[in-house]
Design a protein around this nucleic acid. Structure first.
Lengths: 149, 149
DNA sequence: TACGTTATTGCAACTCGTTCTCAATAAGAG
DNA sequence: CTCTTATTGAGAACGAGTTGCAATAACGTA
């Protein structure tokens, strides 16, 4: 059962309806090679169906997240927008350079360990983790030193 | 040298001026027992000096953060507002229940390990880490089960 | 297959944290 | 004390995300 079938299933199980708009959004998410934000998704969806609205994109993303099909992240240092990815995709995390805004993607088993610690220690069920780091990339550290000298 | 002196120093070093408004905000931050958001800080500052403006609070917080004196976090699941704390305070992280919004504060050496890994592997200098977890607290897990049955 | 209920949609107006503009003020070097 | 210019207060502006409402359409049922 692929993602789209599972999505239909999950939506219907919770009393929802699988509409053409949701179908489009689900397909775009399943085909995405990188995290997408609501507006990017809207641009793409609009190319398929010019009548689709941004509000529907937001509502669908929230529905999918509530159904446990999609994960919401904040990647950038200033958390200025949410990005979305399939729950089954590898969760990647991001470091953003304060100065040049370069983004470095990383993965780490340590995040998983933090989740486990929380589940063990507090009995919670962790459903999403947002890990954003920021600071200076190697280039900007050097630039900073030169400027300071 | 306490925080306020260091703050004055750092601000002056970068060509800034230590104003009465900044003094108030720095004091409030130094005395805070918990993370504060801009509005909370504004309320308190307003009690000291009714003429202080919210814009100044925001500007000062950004100045302090750029000077490396203050840390910005997002604690809640929806990242709806930034909270601030002294850089020298213990950085705590937060788990938020999706259902009842209860917040569980936690600390973990693992976050520190992630920073070290990034510094080793990519040569970056990590200046801030935002780690937000969400999911279901023990009570809401139980409630969920009952509802589903 | 047609019907009726009601979830979903598009649109536009709205929310609200945060930033910006700009004229007025004041810090602090000289 | 003076001059330069960083900083301020007030309010407008910004922008991601949400919401109210009337119109539309999904899908269980007859």
């Amino acid at each position: 059962m692929d993602f789209q079938e599972r999505a239909s299933q999950a939506i219907r199980d919770s009393g929802g309806r699988m509409t053409a708009q949701r179908q489009i959004i689900v397909e775009l998410l399943a085909d995405a090679h990188e995290d997408l934000d609501a507006d990017g998704l809207f641009q793409q969806a609009h190319a398929c169906d010019t009548s689709i609205s941004l509000a529907t994109v937001y509502r669908t993303l929230n529905t999918l997240e509530a159904a446990g099909l999609v994960r919401q992240h904040y990647n950038s240092r200033d958390h200025d927008r949410k990005v979305y990815q399939l729950i089954e995709a590898d969760a990647g995390y991001h470091f953003t350079c304060r100065n040049c805004r370069r983004v470095i993607h990383f993965e780490s088993a340590l995040v998983q360990q933090i989740k486990q610690m929380l589940e063990m220690e507090f009995g919670v069920q962790v459903m999403n983790a947002c890990v954003c780091m920021d600071g200076l990339c190697p280039d900007c550290q050097t630039a900073q030193l030169i400027k300071g000298a």
